[in-house]
Nucleic acid binder design. Structure first.
Lengths: 243, 243
DNA sequence: CAGTGGTCTAGACCACTTT
DNA sequence: AAGTGGTCTAGACCACTGA
């Protein structure tokens, strides 16, 4: 793996986060930017960079002329929708100790929509990986990941499905997953997925329908995920655009 | 209203957005930061601020050593979940010409959960406003907004319900809505809301369950919204946290 | 009026990509 | 080697808050 040293801003962020969750700041008041800059031996700009990001995450609130404060409400958010990356991590953030189960790995011809999403020809072979994330034998998340076979260097590997998808893409396709464009949809569970999640068919559920892109902005994976909303809820902070 | 002049960064953002959607840049390549800085007569830092925000919105991609590029995929997102503010605006962004219909305005005692959310006593009177957003007589969004009566300066105003909620809070409560903490839930439509949206009871739908806070971080409104997913879809960009 | 965050500048140096 | 974005600094001035 690449060993990149954390930037000063990252270190300041980590330092502040630790002090914030540790409750170090009296009445939620965070020291002035200049004071922190002097104490930590960095410039005020670096402190402000860290503050900007913490504010965007909803962890702090800045008030001109007044000060910078801990935001208790934002602090309680466990899974911020915009920076979900690995479901394993999401579940651990919720206090679970998740396990993963590979349900199926098969090859199918791409349908119209998938082909368009992945930038391939309809009918082209696609590797479909079906997985289940569980907490204590209790299923929580069901996912399909679909990768065009033409991207894969090696022939289909038996252990492939058990890797996290970003690692699979890295190792077997030489692609580095950069971001997803996700559509959030309500669905009535179909018989198969319902059975896998131990729910009744027709139960309403949240679904992500998304395309993952690599660093060159090329589509590499089509994914569909379904969640048990009684076990996993997503929160986010909404603001006025540009504010 | 407050008349604040747009910052240089804001102006640069607007300028770049216009050129980007206008297709001004050959092959999606955006000029080097230094060049833009010279051309626009601002510092490179200002350009970089604007770039950072555009990148976060998914409109551009920056590649160290290579350049800055338009992101066609991010450009297609109409409603970014994180910066939805007014539903009226969301619908207009989708190319609709929306209208709003006030269904009901009534006073109710607060339940346990709502009281906790709004920081008031259970049983305290709460003004409930029920609205419908339509496109061409076709209902798209159904909302409830709940505001504690103790926040309201004037007695219940007949025209109150027709204002956008942030304007209502501004005028009638003297509170400036700053952000929402939203929970995204799948629901099976109840009879009433289903009827309002011209759907069958039990249809799965997306719902926002949220609390709005003012600038002093005090809860001011509890809201529940339900959407017709065939007419309105939400997208967002997901990234690895901290990236 | 003192202290805070908000904006902006000019410039240095580094890491990476491309030629 | 040249050109690009990434990080960081030091300092100026502004806008706003609160005593």
């Amino acid at each position: 793996m690449i060993t990149r040293k954390p930037s000063l801003t990252d270190q300041v962020m980590a330092y502040l986060k630790e002090r914030i969750v540790g409750g170090d700041f009296e009445e939620g008041r965070i020291p002035p930017e200049m004071e922190l800059a002097m104490d930590l031996g960095v410039s005020r700009t670096t402190i402000r960079d860290a503050f900007s990001r913490l504010e965007h995450e909803g962890i702090i609130i800045r008030r001109q002329g007044s000060g910078t404060f801990v935001n208790e409400h934002g602090l309680q958010i466990k899974s911020r929708l915009e920076d979900i990356w690995s479901y394993d991590e999401v579940l651990r953030d919720h206090g679970y100790t998740p396990s993963v189960q590979v349900l199926d790995t098969r090859t199918e011809p791409a349908g119209e929509k998938l082909a368009a999403d992945l930038g391939i020809e309809p009918g082209e072979p696609v590797l479909v990986m079906e997985k289940l994330f569980l907490e204590n034998d209790q299923p929580v998340i069901h996912t399909y990941n679909r990768v065009a076979e033409r991207l894969m260097g090696h022939p289909d590997d038996a252990a492939a499905g058990s890797l996290p998808i970003y690692e699979f893409l890295e190792r077997h396709c030489g692609r580095h997953l950069s971001y997803y464009v996700s559509e959030i949809l309500p669905v009535a569970l179909g018989a198969h997925v319902a059975a896998m999640l131990h729910l009744e068919a027709g139960t309403p559920a949240l679904s992500f329908d998304e395309v993952g892109y690599d660093e060159d902005n090329q589509p590499v994976v089509g994914a569909t995920s379904v969640f048990r909303d009684d076990l996993l809820r997503f929160r986010l902070i909404r603001r006025k655009a540009g504010a």
